[in-house]
Amino acid sequence: MKVTWTYDRGNQRDNHEVELSDPAALEALLREIQQAGEPVVLTIFSDTADDPDDLPPGMQIGLGHPTHAFAVHIADDGSYLTDPTAETPAAGLRFDFGGVPTEYPAEHLQHRPETAIQLAVAFLRTGGEPPRLAAAE
């Protein structure tokens, strides 16, 4: 699967793209990004969309904040995933999305970073099956 993310560096964008098939390699990458402490949106997908302006089926996760993250399944029936055991922040948070600082509302930030990482790794491991929280299965 392809993993993409971009940081806003003021007058330039710092674009990243890797192709990964090993869940352990994805987990190591995501932990490194989380530890860097720069909130960023990562897009994980296998198929490209016909329209370059459309997101292909996959998932996005927001990592880099010390305590909050998000995960969203990108599909016709996709949605933000929520962990009822995670504390919702008092206000929205900014994550770099495509190099653009983007505010995500508090109600979408209902994950701990560890949970978002595990959802992404499971998404890769299952070959793109819709991500699910262990408690929801």
Rank of each mutant, 00 (worst) to 15 (best):
R31Q: 10
R112Y: 13
E27D: 09
E114F: 07
M59C: 08
E27N: 06
A86Q: 00
I44K: 10
P105K: 14
T82W: 12
G58H: 03
P105T: 15
I117K: 01
F45L: 04
P105H: 13
M59S: 05
N15Q: 12
P57W: 08
P84A: 11
G37P: 09
D83V: 02
P113G: 05
N15P: 06
Q34M: 07
R125N: 04
G127V: 14
I33N: 00
L20V: 09
M59R: 07
E107M: 07
A49G: 11
V121Q: 02
F45M: 04
P84S: 11
D83N: 03
E17G: 12
P89S: 00
E107T: 11
G62M: 02
L42H: 13
G37E: 08
P101A: 02
D22L: 07
D50C: 09
T115Y: 00
A49I: 10
T67D: 14
H73C: 05
L81T: 12
I117H: 01
Y104C: 04
V121T: 04
Q118E: 15
R132T: 04
A25W: 05
F70Q: 03
T43H: 14
H68N: 10
D77F: 11
G98V: 05
E27Y: 04
P89C: 00
E114K: 13
D76K: 04
I61A: 02
G92M: 11
R125P: 00
G62L: 04
I74D: 03
P52D: 05
Y104F: 15
Q60M: 11
S46N: 14
T67K: 15
P52I: 15
A122V: 04
T115A: 08
D50F: 13
A90W: 10
I61T: 08
T85S: 12
A24I: 06
E129R: 15
L133W: 06
L81K: 12
L29C: 02
V40E: 01
A24L: 07
D47C: 13
D76P: 00
P131T: 06
A69T: 13
Y80C: 06
P113D: 05
G78S: 01
G37W: 08
T48F: 15
A122G: 05
L55R: 10
L124I: 01
Y104G: 05
A28T: 12
R132W: 02
S79H: 14
V18D: 01
A75C: 08
A25C: 06
A28E: 12
A69K: 14
V100T: 14
A106D: 07
A69M: 10
A28C: 08
Q12K: 10
G62Y: 02
E27G: 03
D14F: 09
S46I: 10
V40W: 08
V100A: 04
D53V: 13
A91Y: 11
D96S: 13
